[in-house]
Design a protein around this nucleic acid. Structure first.
Lengths: 215, 215
DNA sequence: TGTACATCAGTGAACGCGCGTTCACTGATGTAC
DNA sequence: TGTACATCAGTGAACGCGCGTTCACTGATGTAC
């Protein structure tokens, strides 16, 4: 991940050169530290080493910056999920479990992105691009659900969209209740990953999907 | 639900009489309108028709008020869940589905409470009372999970705590992704209630619980 | 290759605003005698 | 039953602060010729 063509750290000269990226990074840092609520335009500017008026060259306002962070978050999220899914190799179930882990790993490793995407109050459809990015990320999950469903006997096959929504909701629920550091302070008799994996396995068994019927 | 012994609406005289309750109600109103982020101590005071210094007689600061709102929210939540559960009558599965609906109904009808409880950044253990209230609400869910599990053949019976966590996570995921008005703007091919009910049914089938084996 | 000029991305000073918080105060309530 | 007094719950003025936003400006960059 490189933000600039030839950045040596530290702004030099009158022009910053990569202020837009720097502001996004500042936002991520601040959101990670104090939550998406306690993050201000002015502080992001300060954090980027720039006057408080400078950000207006790149973002309409605080919400615009936040939405941009969410947009990038969805893009990263899509990449992470798609990489984990890996086209369902070696078999759909194994790949699905891997994707579940990737989901939680993303929420844990990138709490600021996750927060901007789902908990910042930015409406998911505030921008066509944002909506599209969100849908692309969900499409990965949906593709996985489709592959899993396609392995079931056609009779009584559930709609893949519903399966995808169930898995999404459960993943999101676990991530937001237990997924982040000890900030949430909710203790658990098992790891979030184990909880999700077990839940998905039970759910799939309920669908009639049997482990080991792969690829 | 009565907040005062003999309130006729509108503060009269020098003393408010029920400022503490009025501030909580103001907080609920403001949170419902603008989310738990955009709610200030000063505005709550204004909303209650009182000087900005008055709230300090009842709450240490904004976070203290917010935590109090969350506490009351958990108490209401526990009541709502317990009422829906109704000791598992007429049978555990029926009662469980009813409780799922009650979960979503609460999140929808009391978004301010729900937000204070789960999305406001108030740490669940910030206060012993808050933690206890949260645990009491969860205990209802756990009791339901225990009853459901007790109807399974002892061999291969899953830990009830895990079952309770799965149901909680799914419910919370659905509530926070799809559960509130059109604020979230995420469209769904079915209602949140149907989605949750279907998910729980599939999950229970995966556990080997068969519908109709009631009471 | 050099010069003029347009454009771009930043400055920094200034503003009004609402918030959180404090303070000495005061009106109302309740209680002791 | 009446009076004195302690306590409680509010006032309102004041403060410092940081935020969002604007403005005319200026330094740097890139391009046309």
């Amino acid at each position: 991940m490189s933000w600039s063509k030839d950045e040596k750290d530290g702004p030099r000269g009158y022009h910053h050169g990569n202020l837009k990226e720097a502001l996004v990074r500042a936002a991520l840092e601040l959101i990670a530290q104090k939550g998406s609520a306690g993050f201000t335009f002015a502080e992001a500017a300060r954090w980027a080493g720039v006057s408080p008026a400078a950000p207006y060259r790149h973002f309409r306002d605080r919400d615009d910056l936040l939405a941009n962070v969410a947009l990038r978050g969805f893009e990263q999220f899509e990449i992470a999920l798609a990489r984990a899914w890996d086209d369902g190799r070696p078999d759909a179930l194994t790949a699905l479990e891997r994707m579940g882990k990737a989901y939680l790993a993303f929420a844990r490793a990138e709490p600021a992105y996750y927060s901007a995407m789902f908990e910042s109050g930015v409406p998911p459809a505030s921008t066509p691009e944002l909506r599209a990015a969100g849908e692309r990320a969900f499409a990965v999950l949906r593709e996985a659900a489709e592959k899993v469903c396609s392995q079931m006997p056609p009779k009584g096959r559930p709609p893949a969209l519903m399966v995808a929504l169930h898995i999404w909701a459960t993943s999101h629920g676990i991530a937001s209740l237990f997924g982040r550091g000890d900030a949430a302070q909710r203790t658990l008799p098992m790891s979030a990953e184990e909880l999700l994996e077990a839940g998905v396995l039970v759910y799939l068994r309920g669908l009639g999907v049997t482990a080991g019927s792969g690829s």
